[in-house]
């Protein structure tokens, strides 16, 4: 049996000591290799907290988090950082490219972080990915010289450069017009199908959620609905 990309067991998260706020309540869920899931829910439902925990940027108060078969709750900060670099890709709403780096340098960044130094082959790989997202000609441009859609494509290339089994996307199209959003979504879908990369995408757009394999709905820190989409494209 293939190991799931994500396996959450009884994951809870609460903040505060005197006034305790429960953000996530005993979540159980798994995400299979190559699955494309939408995470939906009203604001304050715990989507961002869940994404941070899955992204190993935050730790659960209790429960176990397995990413690509690795139990993470016992790992120290350095080990988490290493695991994050090799198994996870991030795409944020406001793309969050490093403003002082060119497109190709931004794409190279995760490889640099993993290897510690810059090599020729990194640049080759980054350029190939930029080519794949249709931005080869903008490789030497700074983020400020690109449109929002182009920046998001660079961010997707950056998320995929290490060949991670899972990409976490926090409203990747929330800041884009419908047409551009469709293009960005289609690009993610292509990578998902071609490279069997699993995606977990937070979105407020029901149109896009309907085009995912699966929709997970979070309300008040609980999964209230988890359904397979019948009409996957």
């Amino acid at each position: 049996m293939v190991e799931p990309v994500v396996l959450l067991t009884d994951v809870s998260k609460s903040y505060g000591t005197t006034i305790v706020t429960d953000v996530l309540r005993a979540l159980n869920f798994r995400l299979e290799v190559g699955e494309f899931a939408a995470l939906i829910g009203p604001s304050g439902s715990g989507k961002s907290t869940l994404l941070n925990i899955l992204g190993l940027l935050d730790r659960p108060t209790s429960g176990s988090v397995c990413i690509a078969g690795v139990e993470t709750t016992t790992l120290d900060d350095a080990a988490l950082t290493g695991l994050r670099g090799t198994t996870l890709g991030f795409v944020f709403q406001f793309h969050h490219l490093l403003s002082g780096l060119t497109a190709v340098e931004n794409v190279m960044m995760p490889m640099l972080a993993a290897k510690g130094r810059r090599t020729r082959s990194m640049e080759q790989r980054a350029l190939a990915l930029l080519d794949r997202v249709g931005l080869r000609s903008l490789a030497r441009s700074l983020p400020s010289q690109m449109s929002g859609g182009q920046q998001q494509r660079v961010a997707i290339a950056r998320a995929l450069v290490m060949g991670p089994p899972l990409v976490l996307a926090d409203e990747p199209t929330g800041n884009l017009d419908t047409k551009t959003a469709d293009g960005v979504f289609a690009l993610m879908r292509e990578f998902n199908v071609e490279q069997r990369v699993a995606f977990l995408m937070v979105t407020h757009d029901p149109r896009l959620a309907a085009r995912c394999d699966r929709t997970i709905e979070l309300v008040d820190g609980r999964i209230v609905a988890d359904r397979k989409t019948t009409t996957a494209p």
Binding site: L57, T81, F90, L98, P110
Partner: peptide, 16 residues
């Protein structure tokens, strides 16, 4: 701050 956070998210070590 935000760029440092992203660098950390992408696997950049604290020591770096």
């Amino acid at each position: 701050r935000r760029e440092i956070g992203i660098l950390r998210a992408m696997g950049t070590r604290r020591s770096t």
